[in-house]
């Protein structure tokens, strides 16, 4: 393994020193990830980068720039050259959620959408003693006890909170959000009984659903999630339009050459559907989902507008 990377590195160094004028890409690509090393975004981007390296025949250097809920990395990336050698692997929150609550230097126009890669829903779970057994019962219990229940989430104004509040607002529910540093921390406090409801990613809570300690009653996607048979999708509850997902995408800087976008999005589509990568996504509770080019731009804009409305309702917006 080490030998292989050393070899790849060495060959790129040799390739670098030869002034060959081949077609794109002819030198290593730098991939910025707006999160610290080790998180969900980071691992899925790194796995994908290995496949892309093979397909593109060049090495990809990963740069982690965490902080500010992804806005630090996004702001730093915005300033890179649009020559196709700087790419940005992000999840949706820094682009559609963070600008609602923070003053950021970028907007959706600061990037060129290339392709989305995968998506997953958030889930809301309760302890096994909770007096409800399905999604509708869960919402009814919460609605009839305003202010009684606390739910852990990934941070004030984070996508998870907005996803939940979107549903709660539609059902006139008043639950108290408790922000934590991430799904792992939320889970620990949920299991210890410090918050009543777990809100976060599916893969984190899954082991405790399997051993019966927790039951997940709601997912934030329109469709049901096979891994959580007890949970209702939003379509079954008649709220398909309130769907909020966690999804990942690769973007370029503003005004990236359409030919490069085309080449990259095609390569990404093949890489994402690689059986090994699909298998990897499955362990994280994610499924491949490729939306390319301008369609991705439209998806971002739609999500941005919907979340702007929710955060205005919460009094969070800037």
């Amino acid at each position: 393994m080490k030998m292989k990377t050393a070899f790849v590195g060495l060959t790129t160094v040799i390739a670098l020193s030869l002034p060959a004028q081949a077609e794109y890409p002819e030198r290593p690509i730098e991939l910025t990830i707006p999160a610290g090393a080790g998180g969900g975004t980071d691992t899925s981007a790194r796995k994908l980068a290995i496949l892309l390296e093979e397909a593109l025949g060049t090495s990809i250097a990963i740069l982690n720039v965490g902080g500010g809920g992804g806005s630090v990395g996004a702001s730093q990336f915005m300033q890179s050259k649009n020559d196709g050698y700087s790419l940005f692997a992000t999840w949706n929150s820094p682009l559609t959620t963070v600008p609602q609550v923070q003053n950021v230097a970028y907007s959706l126009d600061s990037f060129t959408p290339i392709a989305s890669t995968s998506e997953t829903a958030y889930t809301l779970c309760v302890k096994s003693v909770f007096p409800a057994e399905n999604g509708q019962g869960f919402l009814d219990e919460l609605a009839s006890n305003p202010g009684k229940y606390t739910y852990g989430n990934d941070g004030i104004g984070g996508t998870m909170q907005l996803a939940a509040e979107r549903i709660f607002q539609a059902n006139k529910i008043d639950a108290i959000p408790i922000p934590f540093g991430g799904a792992g921390e939320t889970l620990q406090n949920f299991l210890g009984g410090h918050v009543d409801i777990y809100g976060g990613s599916i893969s984190t809570v899954l082991p405790y659903v399997e051993n019966g300690e927790a039951k997940c009653l709601l997912v934030t996607s329109a469709a049901d999630v096979p891994a959580l048979p007890q949970a209702s999708g939003l379509e079954a509850l008649g709220m398909a339009d309130k769907e909020t997902l966690l999804w990942r995408a690769i973007l370029g800087p503003k005004d990236l050459d359409p030919a490069i976008v085309k080449k990259l999005s095609d390569v990404i589509e093949t890489a994402v559907n690689d059986p090994g990568y699909v298998e990897f996504l499955k362990t994280k509770g994610e499924v491949p989902n490729v939306v390319k080019g301008p369609d991705l731009g439209a998806r971002l804009q739609a999500e941005f507008d919907a979340l702007a409305e929710v955060s205005k309702g919460l009094g969070l917006s800037q």
């Binding site: 080490k2 990377t5 050393a6 590195g9 160094v13 730098e30 250097a61």
Partner: peptide, 8 residues
């Protein structure tokens, strides 16, 4: 750094 770890 550059060969083994490929750090930019």
């Amino acid at each position: 750094f550059s060969v083994l770890l490929e750090k930019p």
